Simulated scan of single mutants.
Amino acid sequence: MLRGLAGFAALFILGWLGGFVWFVAEAIRPAGPIPKADGIVVLTGGAGRIGAALDLLDADRAQLMLISGVSEGVDLADLLRAAGRTFEPGYADRIALGHAATTTIGNALETASWARSNGLHSLIVVTAGYHMRRALAEIGTALPEATLIPDPVQPPAMIRPSLGTLKLLSSEYTKWLLVVFGLTGAAHLREFA
């Protein structure tokens, strides 16, 4: 019995490590050409995300944009200033701020609500490369009828990897596995309770 448990543990660890290597390769892969979509959603929480999403909006890759997970009391002018951008005419009509989300699940629910209320069927999703798989899985669960187009941003931690980067990647990989295997439980219901 002990031999069987040891074999199972070894297979589990090898499977986890093999999947982790694939996950890291996917996390650092640059985006291909981004087609036009109905909307853009950017998930806050990391460097370069809002600027990358604004570049897409300015290039008319979509007409509307949601910035999900914005802290209470922060407005569009604050976000633009932090991204080193100026307030362009028309931004106020094209960019919505979501203040309700505090987690990736919350981002997904906020995105689904915004997309449905605006009749959007395709979304460019902007977040960090290491966060993209989980973001797509959560948004896809909340908004299964939409086409999701990933546009990953590579934060500085991915350019100069360290032990902290490895911990971040392994944590994000494990969280993604929990989503894939449906082990996030009722967390979807708690976000906006």
Rank of each mutant, 00 (worst) to 15 (best):
D93W: 11
A112Y: 09
A27H: 03
V126F: 08
L183N: 02
I13L: 15
L5I: 14
D151Y: 15
I34G: 01
L178S: 07
A128Y: 05
I34P: 06
L166R: 08
G45S: 05
T174Y: 10
A25L: 15
A25C: 13
R85I: 08
A108E: 02
G98F: 09
T147N: 02
M1R: 10
G73I: 03
G98E: 04
R134P: 03
A77Q: 12
L169F: 15
Y91C: 05
L109G: 04
T104N: 05
A27Q: 05
A128W: 13
A187Q: 13
A135G: 06
I159K: 13
A187P: 00
G46S: 13
L120Q: 01
G140N: 06
I67L: 05
L76C: 04
Q154W: 11
E26W: 13
A112Q: 03
W16G: 00
M158S: 12
P30K: 06
L5H: 07
L178K: 14
G90I: 12
W16S: 02
I28F: 15
A186S: 10
A52D: 05
M1V: 10
A62N: 10
F181C: 04
A9I: 15
A108L: 06
E191W: 11
A77I: 11
G106A: 08
I124M: 06
L43H: 02
S113G: 14
G39V: 01
T111P: 00
L177K: 07
W176E: 02
I34Q: 01
G4M: 11
L66A: 07
